[in-house]
């Protein structure tokens, strides 16, 4: 148990630093922005109580807000995503008791379900972020283009991170 806590503590810090130092400076073709730190929310164990998931996600969003001067945008989106996470998982994987490992991954969910789960969360998160951002500047075509390209970019990076970590674990075993 304490091993999992330490694992997630480091994941939290690494995700914030990675987002703030590297991914916040990327903007492909002036539209696609990778929002990679939600990997932390995706990875939180299914067995963790909803209150903890909400609190951790809110703190995560709040930290990103402070670093990138976005004032509540990411905290709001993170809280909403944390609330919907369980339902999204249930939608694709109704038998929660069959899970071998409480942490959602390719191994515990199967590659099809896991990619669908990640893609849904990333798409929802990007839509939320760009909708909240465009309260003041409204341009529908650009908004949709931004959501789609950012979702694809984020999804690719998250799947990439996942494949790296899984390989390492297998080597250790």
């Amino acid at each position: 148990m304490s091993k999992t806590i330490i694992h997630f503590f480091f994941l939290f810090i690494i995700m914030i630093l990675a987002q703030v130092i590297i991914f916040n400076n990327i903007c492909l073709f002036n539209v696609a922005i990778p929002i990679v730190f939600i990997y932390f929310i995706i990875k939180l164990p299914v067995t963790l109580s909803a209150n903890w998931v909400l609190t951790l996600s809110f703190i995560m969003g709040f930290c990103i807000d402070i670093f990138s001067d976005t004032h509540g945008m990411h905290s709001l989106a993170c809280t909403i995503i944390a609330m919907m996470r369980r339902n999204i998982l249930k939608l694709y994987f109704p038998r929660e008791d069959d899970l071998t490992n409480p942490e959602p991954s390719i191994h515990s969910l199967g590659i099809g379900v896991y990619t669908k789960y990640v893609f849904t969360i990333v798409l929802l998160y990007n839509s939320l972020i760009f909708l909240i951002e465009s309260f003041s500047i409204f341009n529908l075509g650009l908004l949709i283009l931004r959501i789609i390209t950012s979702t694809l970019l984020t999804f690719l990076i998250i799947i990439g991170i996942d494949s790296i970590t899984i390989q390492r674990r297998e080597k250790r075993l």
């Binding site: 909400l54 609190t55 809110f58 969003g61 807000d65 004032h71 509540g72 945008m73 905290s75 709001l76 809280t79 909403i80 909240i132």
Partner: peptide, 9 residues
């Protein structure tokens, strides 16, 4: 949490 975020936002 939603209220706190909205106040900030």
């Amino acid at each position: 949490y939603v209220i706190i975020s909205c106040i900030l936002l």
